[in-house]
Design a protein around this nucleic acid. Sequence first.
RNA 1: GCGGGUGUAGCUCAGUUGGUUAGAGCGCCAGAUUGUGAUUCUGGAUGUCGCCGGUUCGACCCCGGUCACUCGCCCCA
Length: 414
Amino acid sequence: MASLQPVRGTQDLLPDAQRRHRAVIDTARDLAARYGYQEIATPIFEFTDVFSRPIGETSDIVSKEMYTFTDRGGEEITLRPEYTAGIVRAIMSNGLTQSLPQKLFGAGPMFRYERPQKGRFRQFHQIDVELIGVAQPLGDVEIISLAANILDAFGILKRTVLELNTLGDTASRVAYRAALVEYYAGHRDGLSEDSLRRLEKNPLRILDSKDEGDKRINADAPLFEKYLTPEAQDFFGKVKSGLDTLGIAYQVNSRLVRGLDYYCHTAFEFVTTDLGAQGTVLAGGRYDGLMGVMGGPETPGVGWAAGIERLALLIDEPAPPPRPITLAPLGDKAEAIALGIAQSLRKAGFNIDLGFSGNLKRRMQRADKIKARAVVILGDNEIEKQIAAVRDLDTGEQVEVALGLLEERLKPFR
RNA sequence: GCGGGUGUAGCUCAGUUGGUUAGAGCGCCAGAUUGUGAUUCUGGAUGUCGCCGGUUCGACCCCGGUCACUCGCCCCA
């Protein structure tokens, strides 16, 4: 039955995998809270405009990667391909533009219709941090430092490189873009097919081309530094010196650009060589123009997103789940008593696995398989004497315990 | 969307120039042990060989298509 296959690019997160995701999210959320970032959740789908307008019709995300459909009410709906636009919309919808800055953390699924690869899915998950209403470079420094702290908490900061660039302010970018277009237009014959398309859609992208011919042309391409306004240079300088102050290492990569139209000033990526072609583990930047484009008041913002699947591939095995104590009642009478015991032990904070069926051997096997710490055996013999047999599964030691003392005597196994 | 590789048991994988009953390890089930797991021993079941079609006396093997996975490109977390 082909329908038993999950949809291409989706995956089941079985408990072991989900525990890795959970570890990523929980660690990130805790650290973000230490910086004063509160968790937010926005809908998984929005009106299509929320994404298509700010992200830009010419971008790959909008032109070919969105899961868009018309719902039964005739509304154009899109499954979110990224978090930022939805969060910014939520801030406007709820009037939070009156209480800035907003420091927000989010985590959840995103959807992009792409060809799946290692660390790349059609439904994937991101953690996301947004700082909205802060125009100062100190904000950029803060979220980058949060990102570095999170990666460090995962033990993978050493395996990544922070690449940093500036896209300048609007004046800088417009001037530079014009200079690039003029330059490349003069070299049309030598450009790759991909770059000819980029020339129309996003000329900055050509700078990052892997094509050899493009690289030769890029060698003499105009440099962004010459087109940066003094203000933009000053901004970039402050971001860099802030990172220096914190001892956060970075490499300026002038070819690092952004596919999304609303980015300006700071652009950064933490990249690794351990994930094949999907080297970017966490990426973000400043988007001062976004809220204005979406019809709200001009409000600066800066943020990043990280792929949970990619992080989960890199982190160490998270702590195993707590080991339960298995209750093994034998017979109807024992079952009734065990139900009550399970209830009160759980209320007392014990992690109790109550067996449902099987003879004692079966129950012991199951207890072993789920790595139970101990088994409480309740059979007719025990009930008659008002005791339970408590077996330590690690040592094999077994003792008889009066039912009234059970909670006390099980404490070592908690 | 484009190009390469791979699909055999629940999992990881063997499978001879195309030859008739398709294998191993792990896991699973049962027994040794009818109230005692893990360990040990014995036995058992694994299966549309991804799917559809073609070539052939005969296809897990060759060919075509298709689906999935995977690596790279595009793009991105």
